[in-house]
Amino acid sequence: MLLLKLIYIELIKIFKRPRSYIGFITIGILIPLIMFLIDKFGFDFQQHHFLPFESAFLFQGSLVNGYLISYYLMTVLWVHFPFFIILVAGDSFAGEAAKGTFRIFLTRPVSRFQVITAKFIATYIYTAIIVAFLGFMCLGAGSIILGSGDLFVFDKGILILSQNEALLRFFIGYLLAIFVQMVVASLALFLSTLNDNSVAPIIGTYAIIIVSIILSILKIDALESIKPYLFTTYFDVFFSPFADPIPWSDIFNYLIALGKFIGLFYILSIVSFVRKDILS
């Protein structure tokens, strides 16, 4: 019960900070703008990918719709979108340390373990809300401006998913994206426990993500052995539901790997925060 109250308090803290709304505002403006621009200026997509069919087939209807753009916009979840999570998670401990509120907060009958758990859960809830908002804006604004329909994806060639099937895949995809962003949030929270200034965990987390992605992308044999230890190697799990059949065992393995990173950062945060001297 106390933990629930702590989570509630942490959520209030998160949503009282103006920085928590930067992501929502950006998504709220950017996504409809992208959809509008595609609607106005078009998207040269169909002609390029259906070249082998051109001589024998007539294309009835269009594959450029809100779902297709939403699918491609999911790529922002790798590098760009984590910034909104880091901005909030990175400030969670460091922000309070800088303001000196921990000293009062920890005089109350709550353990540091409960505080840290509440902060993690509250940040995960924020993460889930903002990812869901991204999904809602992409699919909602996309369907309104560009319309809905079948979804074109690449999977062992060309795969066209029916509208209902695509919606289900998006739902699973965004759920997995929440899990991916939880890893980002966990890393930012861990780095936040180490600092008394929120700038350092924000920049630090972002730098780690960028470096990890670079190492994941580079096709150098020597790097292959370290790739399983980079959490970014598993970041594309949210595209897995768009395969046919859905590779559930791969998804499960990726979730296990990501779960290990979440667990690792959580334990490291506990160790760091429990041993931390609250001096201000």
Binding site: W78, V153, F154
Partner: peptide
């Protein structure tokens, strides 16, 4: 029933990944 040969076929392209953010890069190797 239309039975047809697709000259040079359809590439076995895969979906987006960290190393190929938009997927389908194999379409360049028709």
């Amino acid at each position: 029933l239309f039975t047809m040969i697709f000259p040079k076929g359809i590439p076995n392209a895969s979906g987006p990944s960290i190393s190929d953010p938009f997927g389908g890069s194999q379409f360049g190797t028709l």
